Simulated scan of single mutants.
Amino acid sequence: MNTTESAVQDLFKEVMSCVATPVSIVTVMSDGDLPFGATVSAFSSLSIDPAMLLIALDRRSKTLEVIRESGRFGLNVLGADQDDLAMAFAAKGGVDKFYGTSWSVDCGLPRIAHAPAWIASTVVDLVDGGDHVIVLGRVDAAESTGDKAPLVYYRRSFGTHLPHYEPV
């Protein structure tokens, strides 16, 4: 990589730190019934008809490897008080990310307890995206408790969003 590319990457990271993003944990169950998960801030709704979303995972991710094998994934949208889980599931390597985490199996996928929103999806396509892979998923099930403020990542730290006004 040359110095110009490096400078552009540094500037891009700085600009992207100015964008508040939701924080979620993508989960999947292996054939051996072992749970895997990874923290992501790159996810978005994609389509309503059919209901679809997209997530982006580092191409070296073990979670992505298991998603490729199983063809399914869960998305646990975290609440403002779950930054400890976001950090735990962001860890790399052979760490048991589920150790000490309250979770259950829902739709055959690991579901993090007390996450304010949950989506179960079937993989429709995988698209290369630089050092990440974009996973397109068809929504099979979704649930929102709506009782917690969301966890967001902004300026390299966790926080939340508070509305300017109360919804009517």
Rank of each mutant, 00 (worst) to 15 (best):
I55W: 02
F12M: 13
L34Y: 13
G79C: 13
D128M: 10
D84P: 04
A141H: 15
R68W: 10
G100W: 07
E166R: 05
L75M: 07
G32S: 08
V123Q: 03
P110T: 04
K62C: 14
G137V: 01
V8H: 06
F12T: 15
V124Q: 10
T27I: 04
P110H: 05
G74H: 00
Q9H: 05
M87V: 15
T145E: 14
Q82K: 08
A20F: 09
S61L: 09
S61Y: 07
F73C: 01
A120E: 03
L46R: 09
R138S: 13
L53N: 01
L75P: 01
R111P: 08
I112S: 07
F12R: 08
S47H: 06
K62S: 12
R155K: 08
G108Q: 08
P116C: 06
S61W: 03
R155Q: 04
C107N: 15
S45H: 07
G137F: 05
D128S: 12
G94D: 13
L78T: 07
T3L: 12
D49K: 11
S144T: 14
H132F: 13
D84C: 02
S157P: 02
D10Q: 11
A80L: 06
A149H: 14
V15D: 09
A38H: 01
D128N: 12
F43T: 00
I55V: 15
L126W: 10
C18T: 10
T39W: 04
L78G: 00
R60Q: 15
A117H: 04
M87G: 13
K92I: 00
V95R: 03
L136A: 03
V127K: 06
L78F: 08
G71A: 03
V26I: 14
D140T: 08
E14W: 03
R59A: 14
V127I: 15
M1E: 03
L64M: 07
Y99E: 15
L75R: 00
H132S: 09
A142W: 03
P110W: 12
S144V: 14
L64C: 09
I134G: 09
P22V: 03
A141S: 15
G146W: 07
K148F: 09
V135E: 00
R111D: 05
P163R: 02
D128E: 14
V23N: 04
R59Y: 11
F89V: 08
A56H: 12
T4W: 02
R111Y: 11
G93E: 00
I25Q: 07
G94N: 06
V23Q: 01
K13R: 12
R156G: 06
G32D: 13
P163S: 14
G93D: 02
D33S: 07
G37I: 09
Q9T: 04
L136R: 00
E65H: 13
D83K: 05
V8T: 05
M16W: 06
E5I: 00
H161P: 01
D31T: 08
G71Q: 03
P22L: 05
I67D: 03
V152P: 04
I67N: 01
